[in-house]
Amino acid sequence: MKSHLWQYFRAWEKFWMGASGETQVRALRVLLGIHLLIAYGIRAMDWKFLYSRDGVANWKNMREILPMSYRFSLFEWFSGDAAILIGMGVFLGLLALWCIGKRNVWIDLGVFVLHVSFLHHNLMVAYGMDLIVTFFIFYVLISNFKTREFNGLSIAYRFAQIQVCVIYAYSGWEKLKGVAWWRGEALWTVLANPQIARFDFGWTSHLPMMIIFSTYVTVLWEIYFCVLVWVPKLRRLTLFIGMLVHVGIGVTLFIPHFASLMLLTYVVFLTPAELNFLQNKFKMLARLPIRTLSKP
């Protein structure tokens, strides 16, 4: 009995401490940096409405009405529009450092603190992307810590993988409570919602079987992702279906940042060889315009 328990403990330790994950976490940081620099750069353009003194978020109001206990923001102590603008500038600057691969615990901590500060300063305009990102920035921060006992990189890598699985699992299970998903018409209610659909998808009403099929594939894939992605022979197919789902979301709905964020988290499921392959392909594509233009 004791030897079995010890075996399980060793397996647990190997899972959490023994994974490499350096390439994946490094890629995650760079891709997150690019993604967040764009997403929060766009959010910064709307700063007056979202965060300024004359904007929709009034800290005193929110503290009285919303469940704000233990939710702090730097802008509670450094209030005023100047502080918001400086905070935004620093935040975007730190994200730019992530984009070029610069890292240390202070940069990562700065990104995390400022991200949470902006989130808490106006929770009303947060949506899925902001909440998901919080976890991955936290894991990137953990990856900085390494001692004899604590391999932060490995722990961060494993938590990032588990986080993606948890997001899909809960999202899928929650869909099982919905009548529209059982009936197969859920995708239609999304495409026919002019507040979230980008274009007129009325033409899809002539393809009801496509809608029903896509609805069921989406919910089944979400529910089983957390198992299938760990099966070596099914990992790539699982990630490929996910890519189709999220590209579809990005193209059809007004939430491209959410779609691209979920896609970039897939790097934690790729091997270093696959990441190097993608990186080389990307470099080749990036050089293509230059090569084409420089041809006689």
Binding site: R71, I167, E174, K175, K177, N193
Partner: peptide, 14 residues
């Protein structure tokens, strides 16, 4: 740390 989320994207109904 703002880890409060229920992961109910388009769920239970979209």
């Amino acid at each position: 740390f703002e880890f409060a989320s229920s992961w109910n994207f388009f769920a239970p109904d979209p």
